[in-house]
Simulated scan of single mutants.
Amino acid sequence: MSVLKINIVLFGKGNVGKEFLNQVIENQKTFLEKRNIDIQFPIIANSRLAYFEKEGVDKFWESNFALAAIPYKLEDILDYVKIHNLENLVAIDLTDSEELVKNYIPLIQNGFNIVAANKNANTSSIEFYKEVRRNLDRHGKTFLYETNVGSGFPVVQTLRDLYSSGEQITKIRGVFSDSFGNVFKRFSTEESLFLSVLSEAGITGSKKSDSIENLYKNDVAKKTLILAREIGANLEFSDVNILPLFSSELKEFNPKQEYEFDKKMLESYGISKIADEDNHILRYVGEFSVLENKLEVQLVSELQSFPIARLDGSEKNFEIYTKSYGKIPIVIQGSGSGKEVLARGVLTDVFKVAEKLRIREKVLV
Score class of each variant (00 low, 15 high):
Tyr269Thr: 11
Ile92Cys: 05
Glu191Ala: 12
Met265Pro: 08
Gly313Met: 01
Val3Glu: 14
Tyr163Glu: 14
Lys141Asn: 07
Glu260Val: 04
Ile328Gly: 07
Leu295Trp: 01
Ala121Cys: 05
Pro329Gln: 11
Leu89Ile: 08
Gly111Pro: 08
Phe180Ser: 00
Phe65Lys: 14
Gly12Glu: 08
Val155Arg: 00
Asn120Val: 10
Ile169Glu: 03
Ala233Thr: 04
Pro244Arg: 04
Val363Cys: 02
Asn88Lys: 09
Pro154Val: 01
Ile308Arg: 06
Ser97Asp: 13
Lys130Gln: 12
Ala343Gln: 02
Tyr163Gln: 14
Thr142Tyr: 13
Phe128Thr: 14
Ile212Leu: 15
Ile271His: 10
Asn214Ser: 13
Gln304Phe: 06
Ala45Tyr: 02
Asp210Glu: 15
Glu131Ile: 02
Lys223Met: 11
Ser192Tyr: 01
Ser125Met: 03
Ala116Cys: 04
Gly12Arg: 09
Asp79Lys: 06
Asn254Thr: 08
Phe184Asn: 11
Asn110Ser: 09
Arg358Asp: 02
Glu19Val: 02
Ile332Gly: 05
Glu267Lys: 11
Ser164Asp: 11
Val90Gly: 01
Lys208Gln: 12
Phe11Cys: 06
Arg310Ile: 00
Leu49Tyr: 15
Thr147Met: 12
Phe306Thr: 14
Leu215Ser: 01
Ser337Gln: 00
Ile330Glu: 00
Lys356Leu: 14
Leu245Gly: 02
Lys356Trp: 15
Ile332Asp: 06
Leu162Gln: 08
Ile281His: 00
Phe184Leu: 10
Leu235Glu: 08
Glu277Trp: 15
Leu32Gly: 06
Glu315Phe: 04
Leu193Met: 03
Glu127Ala: 05
Ile203Glu: 10
Leu243Asp: 09
Pro154Ile: 02
Asp38Ser: 04
Trp61Cys: 11
Val9His: 11
Gln333Lys: 05
Gly232Glu: 06
Ala275Arg: 15
Ile70Asp: 04
Glu33Ile: 08
